[in-house]
């Protein structure tokens, strides 16, 4: 008891020693979406290790950039920014790089991006027949780089993707793809390494991805599909 009182006393002293600083906290929000300029639809992203919005606050030398992440559907929002002007660009993404733009961020500032994805996944279909989950799709690549690999990714979280998966069926391509070729990927739910990971009675999300072979590129995706196993 004595000891607790002592600790409390010390804490009190410690806290009273700290005067609240007199700087304003961050008040500004930057939010928006990233769109495929061709299809005018949201461009699907990864929640971890995905494309990021790079913002550099003006007025500092050698400034440390900040990076805002996207949600999987291509929306982003950060409400902890200081009001100021910034250079803003989505970078290291699954789209052809774009130039940064100068933006004044104050209050709630909306900034949408319109970009061309490296790869469009066309006519995606994910179906399940018994223990086999099958994905079919074609690829329209928008740059002449090789497609490095394609994959069907599975996770219990709806934000499934190449970095966030419990299992995957991947295929290396390493070539320029033929837009007419229909790709097929399957996951056998009863395969030895999978049956203990994707368990019956739970819901899992499956998502088709394709990765271009370009500097710091991220995969392009179709929308995830859920199955109750």
């Amino acid at each position: 008891m004595k000891r607790t009182a002592y600790i409390l006393g010390m804490l009190l002293i410690a806290f009273s020693a700290c005067k609240k600083d007199n700087y304003d906290g961050p008040t500004a929000t930057l939010y928006g979406n990233i769109y495929d300029a061709g299809t005018k639809t949201l461009l699907e992203q990864d929640i971890i290790r995905g494309s990021v919005v790079e913002i550099k606050e003006h007025g500092w030398e050698n400034v440390q950039p900040q990076w805002l992440i996207f949600k999987v559907d291509g929306a982003y929002e950060n409400a902890l920014l200081f009001e100021n002007s910034y250079s803003v660009a989505p970078v290291r993404g699954n789209f052809i790089p774009v130039e940064p733009q100068d933006v004044r961020i104050a209050g709630r500032t909306q900034l949408d991006f319109s970009v061309t994805p490296y790869i469009r996944i066309v006519n995606p279909s994910i179906t399940r027949a018994g223990n086999i989950v099958t994905a079919t799709f074609t690829l329209q690549q928008q740059v002449t780089n090789n497609v490095r690999k394609i994959g069907l990714y599975a996770h219990s979280d709806f934000r499934v993707g190449e970095p966030l998966r419990l299992t995957a069926a991947e295929q290396d391509i390493n070539a320029v793809t033929d837009p007419a070729h229909v790709y097929t990927l399957t996951i056998d739910l009863q395969a030895p390494n999978i049956r203990d990971i994707l368990k019956p009675g739970k819901t899992y999300y499956f998502r088709i991805g394709a990765l271009i072979d370009a500097t710091e590129s991220k995969p392009n995706y179709a929308k995830a599909v859920a199955f109750d196993l």
Binding site: A191, P192, N193, I194, R195, D196
Partner: peptide, 10 residues
């Protein structure tokens, strides 16, 4: 002989 099977004792 499947050396890629890491599914546990079967």
């Amino acid at each position: 002989g499947d050396v890629t099977d890491y599914g546990g004792f079967n």
